[in-house]
Design a protein around this nucleic acid. Structure first.
Lengths: 327, 327
DNA sequence: TTTTTATGTGAAATCGTTTTCATATGTTGA
DNA sequence: TCAACATATGAAAACGATTTCACATAAAAA
């Protein structure tokens, strides 16, 4: 089934059929003839031919580090919901935490594979910035701020600062930090900054010897808590850069018989589902991942529509969730 | 940059350049000339033109009910990993639990949008079966068995039967069931069957009045537990069709002061991350979602390669995880 | 009445590849 | 020597749409 057959069956030219689908000038009479034939045959225009001719794919490339993560999958849900009504679809590129693949996909997508890219970023190297600079199609960075680029990110610093208020409410003697690499500016650097800022405000301290660096897993949180508490057994408040890490920390504390929050207060960030079912439940900050995904999608859509002149940076809000692990 | 420009720069015909990329006959001399020009220009052939001409998109359509779900996102991770090396990518279609959209996407994808479809199924209506029957491209059903179609699914019945063994280990007096609609054959019908089978084997019973139907949420598990325990306050073992539901049940039991497992034993299915951090931790069954995704992907790949003559049904194994909520 | 404008139409070019076809040449086997 | 075959090449057709162009016609404006 192609446009020529439809045209012939309807007794019109190919151009007329094309106009029928694209709201071009066409008489009521021919419109009806074509409608009938299209209905009978169930004809759908070839997406490939359209893409080739129009240079529009109606595809948004989504590059992400790992799809099976609560936050990332929520962002994708938000993106999907926002672009569907505009007739776009998601071309998924899961890099499996491989930075090289991020750049590879960026280059592949740039070659007319998709109309725009949403990059769920973690760490930005020189190579990333070079690849981004050379990009010919619109791009939105999601989850990180990157100067000069459209981006949607979370107020990691303020969120960390506010949740730290819960942590230090009972005036701890010895505060600990279980974070992630500050190469990840959002989850590493900014959260650490917010944390330290609140400590300072309260005349508290958390020197480098009180800080340990985990990766994004529960077991790593557990191990690093052990390291921290072995070094400083009198730690009575622990800030964790993610909920998953925090839950690993809780696990270790329970194992050595420390009560939370009586002996040690603990906070996380991210409002992972797990944090609401632990004992004690975890004080944390809720980011609106699905909404940020939707916002990023809208930004790409605007760029594709030719709206949106200047580069936009959108910082999303958050909600502090006070639960049992602090007080 | 198109193939004609490259051909001209290299002093060869378009056909030669095409052969260069597709391992056709080409002399060492020309190969080298083309290689140089391609390297200089960074030329990448237009995917759209290739798709149009070859009728191959190198795309797998993945239709799923909801991407921000632990099991689904793990399946997608598995699919992604398996198809990447074969040069395929995922075109994502999230139906947001809308069965109509499942059929819509099936039809869209069938029209040369993708080379094959993986359908993460839940409920199959007549309309689904009609759409599937009319499908011209290969399809694999993931997560459900559907006779006559390639599918990868889990041994829900046996898994439920085995986890029920844990539940009845202490010879309960009154067994309850919090399940999901049996329109969902995998999570509803088969798990119920497995559950009942083990009960029968032990001379136990769980009549319809002891069974309640939840949806797939934690709060629903909570509400239905309330319903069940109001009706039958002496219930001392509860089978839950999913971990999320089970955790809602645990929440309610704790609220009314029932100890788990001393007063009431509870089991779930699915090995959700939450079940390992609750108090008590949840006895459950681990399915291998990522692996099933990978298997489904391999099946599609085989079908596209012309291998795989007959329809295949692949039933995946499971592992029972005994934790604190039973004993 | 004449000019402008809006509406309607199909032929043909175009998008950027792959593939068929016709045609060579050089090598091998009989 | 001649047939058979593998290797090599470019011209041109094909994939299936959209869009430009030239040309109508009818209605509105001057």
């Amino acid at each position: 089934m192609n446009i020529s057959e439809i045209a012939e069956m309807a007794g019109v030219s190919r151009a007329a059929v094309s106009r029928y689908f694209n709201n071009g000038y066409i008489s009521e009479e021919k419109r009806e003839q074509i409608r009938r034939v299209v209905e009978e045959t169930g004809y759908i225009p070839s997406a490939q031919a359209q893409m080739l001719r129009t240079k529009k794919t109606k595809l948004i490339g989504v590059i992400l580090p790992k799809i099976d993560s609560e936050s990332v999958s929520q962002m994708v849900a938000g993106i999907g919901g926002a672009i569907r009504n505009a007739g776009y679809q998601i071309l998924l590129a899961d890099t499996e935490n491989d930075a090289k693949k991020e750049i590879e996909y960026l280059n592949i997508f740039d070659n007319d594979r998709v109309d725009g890219v949403i990059l769920v970023g973690t760490v930005f190297t020189k190579a990333h910035k070079k690849a981004l600079k050379e990009l010919k199609i619109p791009v939105v960075i999601l989850g990180q701020r990157l100067g000069g680029y459209n981006c949607v990110f979370h107020d990691d610093s303020m969120a960390a600062a506010e949740v730290t208020e819960l942590l230090v409410h009972e005036r701890p003697n010895c505060v600990g930090y279980v974070g992630v690499t500050s190469q990840d500016e959002a989850a590493g650097k900014h959260r650490l900054e917010g944390f330290l800022q609140t400590l300072e405000k309260h005349g508290l301290d958390c020197g480098p010897q009180q800080r340990v660096e985990a990766d994004f897993t529960l077991m790593s949180g557990y191990e690093k808590a052990k390291e921290l508490l072995t070094k400083s057994p009198d730690t009575d408040a622990i800030f964790c850069s993610t909920d998953t890490i925090a839950i690993g920390v809780l696990k270790y504390l329970r194992e050595i018989g420390k009560r939370v929050p009586q002996d040690v207060a603990v906070t996380g960030i991210g409002a992972n589902k797990m944090g609401d079912v632990t004992t004690p439940t975890l004080s944390t900050v809720k980011f609106f991942y699905q909404e940020s995904g939707a916002e990023a999608a809208q930004m790409i859509l605007d760029a594709l529509d030719g709206r949106q002149a200047a580069v936009k940076e959108l910082k999303m809000g958050y909600t502090v969730i006070e639960r049992e692990s602090t007080r």
